[in-house]
């Protein structure tokens, strides 16, 4: 987000201004605390022992830092009846995310290109129909999808989950790329046509290299969405093939045995780390993904 060109406006100085600035920063700091405290609590709890949790408070920092909870969350916490920790489920998520993100992004780009730069008859109607798919509550397709996966022999498998994410991610990715390509001059495509480039030639050699920012935004958006998904994971996978979000929920919500809050927190951080890392590394692209389609201009 660009900075204002109005920073230089001469303003009245004096104590009142200073007070206003003070209040402004106080409010901003307060909200920083509001957003950060849960993260701090999560991290500090994950480094405490269970005894310390029982004796201390939420906000106290760990007295004796221990990695036990992390080790347990990663390798030996019980998810349902299986006690291998989150590790296998993290791999499940990775196996699911990579193909689903790549497929949905590539197909979204291709379709967005075909729909905007080759405006054949009915392209707008097709786009509107596809777009609608981005907004439906997925509850409405859960039952038939479960049956379809069963028929295809993909029920409870990771490939099945990849398919589901790709299909329902397509509406989003097509929307992203359409919005991006609309800003690309039609003249470029015409010029390439006159130069003799074909439909795919133009796509691969001219359009895709131009759309790097849109590709990054879409990859990040899709990655965040699919990694964080819970509904499809819980509805279409069972036990062994659960993605990490479902496994985390199972760890946290097991009713048997002693409640290990430190393990819960470590597990939550493990599940959150990949998307948090992407956010920290590519924050501006993430923000662009969030506001794509919502704010014009």
């Amino acid at each position: 987000m660009n900075r204002r060109q109005i920073d230089g406006i001469v303003r009245r100085g004096g104590p009142w201004q200073a007070v206003q600035r003070g209040v402004l920063f106080a409010v901003l700091a307060l909200f920083c605390a509001y957003y950060l405290v849960p993260l701090v609590v999560m991290i500090s709890t994950s480094f405490k022992s269970l005894d310390e949790i029982r004796l201390g408070t939420l906000t106290s920092l760990p007295q004796a830092v221990t990695f036990e909870a992390w080790a347990k969350a990663w390798g030996s916490a019980c998810v349902g009846v299986r006690c291998d920790g989150l590790q296998p489920y993290v791999w499940n998520s990775v196996m699911m995310v990579v193909p689903a993100v790549a497929l949905s992004t590539f197909l979204g780009a291709l379709n967005g290109y075909a729909l905007t730069k080759w405006r054949f008859r009915g392209a707008d109607v097709i786009f509107a129909l596809i777009l609608f798919g981005a907004f439906i509550p997925f509850q409405v397709i859960l039952l038939p999808m479960a049956r379809t996966l069963g028929v295809l022999g993909l029920a409870g498998t990771i490939p099945g989950l990849i398919m589901v994410h790709t299909i329902y991610g397509l509406a989003f990715t097509t929307l992203f790329f359409r919005n991006f390509f609309i800003g690309v001059s039609d003249g470029i495509v015409r010029a390439a046509q006159v130069d003799g480039a074909s439909f795919f030639g133009i796509f691969f050699r001219i359009i895709l290299p131009m759309s790097l920012p849109a590709i990054v935004v879409t990859l990040i958006w899709q990655f965040t969405q699919i990694w964080n998904d819970f509904l499809f994971g819980v509805a279409f996978t069972v036990g062994e093939s659960n993605p990490v979000t479902v496994a985390l929920n199972n760890v946290v919500n097991t009713s048997t045995g002693v409640k290990e809050y430190n393990v819960d927190m470590a597990a939550a951080i493990i599940a959150a780390l990949p998307t948090l890392a992407v956010y920290v590394l590519a924050g501006s692209y993430f923000v662009r993904g969030l506001s794509a389609g919502a704010v014009k201009g």
């Binding site: 109005i6 230089g8 406006i9 001469v10 303003r11 009245r12 100085g13």
Partner: peptide, 27 residues
Amino acid sequence: LNLISGLETLSSGNIFIGGRKVNDVPP
């Protein structure tokens, strides 16, 4: 023009409008 209007702050020098020094006067 922005300096005369007060939409930009001077780095140095003085601006007078109607004989009044307006360096720190808001627009």
